[in-house]
């Protein structure tokens, strides 16, 4: 048996597990029907590899509903209603809906969590929100960087007003039971199965060592293919 033949064998046996991981994860990642980006990992050991850290919960009261943001979700009480990357600036309860102020927009959402509308500077928002409240007449007051604005609950027209000494509502402390529930949800809905498989495929799940091992296994595969053909052709 030639040296190349022996080397071919040892390479095959030595890289078998890594090549299997590479192939199986590759197969799974190619299957779009599995909707791997919609499934999330909740295993604490796997999540630990991502060093996710704390999931702070930011909350504002909107009448009897607590509007919160943690991780990449927006919550109405303990219900995740939408994905959202921005932090909260304020929230108020309107007659039927909830109006949420974000750094660049106002988000109108039903109490069931259905997004009704989102106002940006190009679609009717007078200024970037800094605070939000509803006055005793039921009018919406918006604090911008330069002025205070007023609108009815339709949010169709905004008027600049000169009212002073408005006490704008601050964020509230999230009740501890709710906070824990939200944090648990946010943590277990952060890393999709697709991302985990991709990180396993590339070896990044185990840091630099994992990356190097996976790269070597790819090199081993190339070597196996070339040496296999070479050995076969010599036998012919």
């Amino acid at each position: 048996m030639s040296n190349l033949h022996k080397f071919h064998r040892y390479t095959g046996v030595g890289s078998a597990i890594l090549v299997l991981i590479l192939s199986i994860t590759g197969l799974l990642l190619n299957s779009t029907d599995l909707e791997l980006d919609q499934r999330f990992i909740s295993n604490s050991w796997l999540l630990k590899q991502y060093s996710l850290g704390e999931f702070p919960v930011q909350s504002y009261a909107a009448s009897d509903t607590i509007v919160s943001k943690s991780g990449r979700y927006l919550y109405l009480n303990n219900e995740a209603v939408s994905e959202m990357n921005e932090s909260l600036v304020g929230s108020i309860a309107l007659q039927q809906d909830i109006l949420i102020a974000l750094p660049n927009s106002l988000l109108l959402i039903s109490k069931e969590g259905e997004v009704i509308d989102q106002l940006f500077d190009y679609s009717g928002l007078p200024e970037r929100p800094q605070a939000l409240m509803v006055d005793t007449l039921g009018l919406v007051l918006l604090k911008g960087q330069n002025a205070v604005w007023q609108s009815d609950s339709n949010l169709s027209a905004w008027q600049q007003i000169s009212r002073k000494n408005i006490s704008w509502p601050d964020a509230i402390e999230t009740p501890s039971v709710l906070s824990k529930e939200i944090q648990r949800h946010a943590r277990t809905h952060e890393i999709s199965l697709e991302r985990m498989l991709l990180d396993l495929h590339s070896g990044r799940l185990f840091g630099k060592i994992g990356e190097t091992l996976m790269s070597l296994s790819a090199v081993a595969l190339i070597f196996l293919a070339l040496s296999g053909v070479y050995v076969w052709s010599r036998r012919q």
Binding site: L198, H201, S202, R204, S215, L216, A218, V219, I222, F223
Partner: peptide, 12 residues
């Protein structure tokens, strides 16, 4: 050459 190439491939 193959080792160098494998490091250049970035799937993410």
């Amino acid at each position: 050459t193959l080792v160098t190439l494998s490091f250049l491939v970035n799937p993410l």
